[in-house]
Design a protein around this nucleic acid. Structure first.
Lengths: 187, 187
DNA sequence: CACCTTAAAGCAAAATCATTGCTTCTACGA
DNA sequence: TCGTAGAAGCAATGATTTTGCTTTAAGGTG
């Protein structure tokens, strides 16, 4: 019943692809805020009622598209050590997510998401990336925190600030968080 | 130009109060998702165009109301010690925010918020509460972390999970986070 | 391979919502 | 007390959303 569970390869899949493509195209042409269901439908060669019946409303559609765009397209780079792997990853995560575009995607993903599954997917992407980094480090014999710890200590603070306090964020904050989780000290 | 900066005591203030009240009443009567601008306008004894002119759209109005409802109505209770003060506060914070109602308010606050000021206000509320707790502890001579640290280590993880992974949250998670920030240990 | 079944898409009308120009009201300052 | 300007009301217009019904096509069955 999930929106991703359409009959693959059939007309439904074509419509989904066309609609998603239309959203991405129009978002870059006329801007995220000018999107409307009828506009998207026209570009996708589809009737508006199809979109309303499948996605419910514009927000849910945008949420779907946002999750798709927030999926990492590549495994985190290997820099030969846990510390640099995590630092680079966190800095890049912050860069991408704190940009106006990134914030818009995050908000879209959170918004049209009654059951929280889309937001959960975003979190799962981050967890997966971190898991890759930690597993690699463990194979090297490094001592590693577990994924949940990194999420609490790095991802959560980054996300919190991106969403609630977008000012004064820079990459040094990300690296400080990573340092904090990797080198626990007595305060 | 902020929405709070209306002429106090005049007609504008009455309208604002009536509209906010209408939103709260209707939200509990027909449910958050059934709210529409015309419905709210009718209940508030106001024309829809007034709402559109003043707030722009439904989302911004809901964002305003949400921030108002997320404002703590009371200072955190004093339990005589930093650890219990913070633990109780964090558990209550989680309770309120993780409920369906609380999540809806958070999302609304984040949503209709082009400039991020409403979300920033929410964060400021939490920071203020924590500041009260920490100041009290400092006066007692307790050793305290600073507000930013508590936000990173307690508030951010709670918020992250509320927003991105609403499943499997319980009060013990909140107290674990508090313990973590107050009693730093070498992992 | 032809035929059924059914989920999804198209179509079009109706309802609802959003926008806007213009008028009227009222709080505030001189 | 009066003038002014910001805010609200009103009403017409335009856009979006919803809905009943029809048509299409994917996937299963004999």
């Amino acid at each position: 019943m999930s929106r991703q569970m359409v009959r693959p390869g059939g007309r439904s899949a074509r419509v989904q692809a066309a609609v998603h493509a239309a959203v991405r195209e129009l978002a870059s042409e006329v801007g995220r805020d000018a999107l409307t269901v009828p506009l998207i439908a026209q570009r996708a060669g589809v009737t508006p009622s199809t979109i309303y019946r499948r996605w419910g409303d514009l927000q849910e559609l945008l949420s779907d598209v946002a999750v798709e765009r927030l999926r990492p397209d590549t495994a985190p780079r290997d820099h030969g050590g846990l510390s640099s792997d995590l630092t680079v990853w966190a800095e890049q995560f912050l860069d991408e997510m704190a940009s106006p575009t990134g914030r818009a995607y995050i908000r879209d993903a959170l918004l049209g998401d009654p059951d929280g599954s889309n937001a959960g997917q975003c979190s799962a992407y981050a967890a997966e990336q971190i898991n890759v980094i930690l597993s690699r480090a463990a194979e090297r014999g490094e001592d590693t925190p577990d994924v949940e710890t990194v999420i609490d200590a790095v991802v959560a603070p980054l996300m919190y600030r991106i969403l609630f306090r977008p000012d004064g964020l820079d990459t040094s904050y990300a690296s400080r968080l990573v340092t904090g989780v990797l080198e626990p000290t007595i305060r």
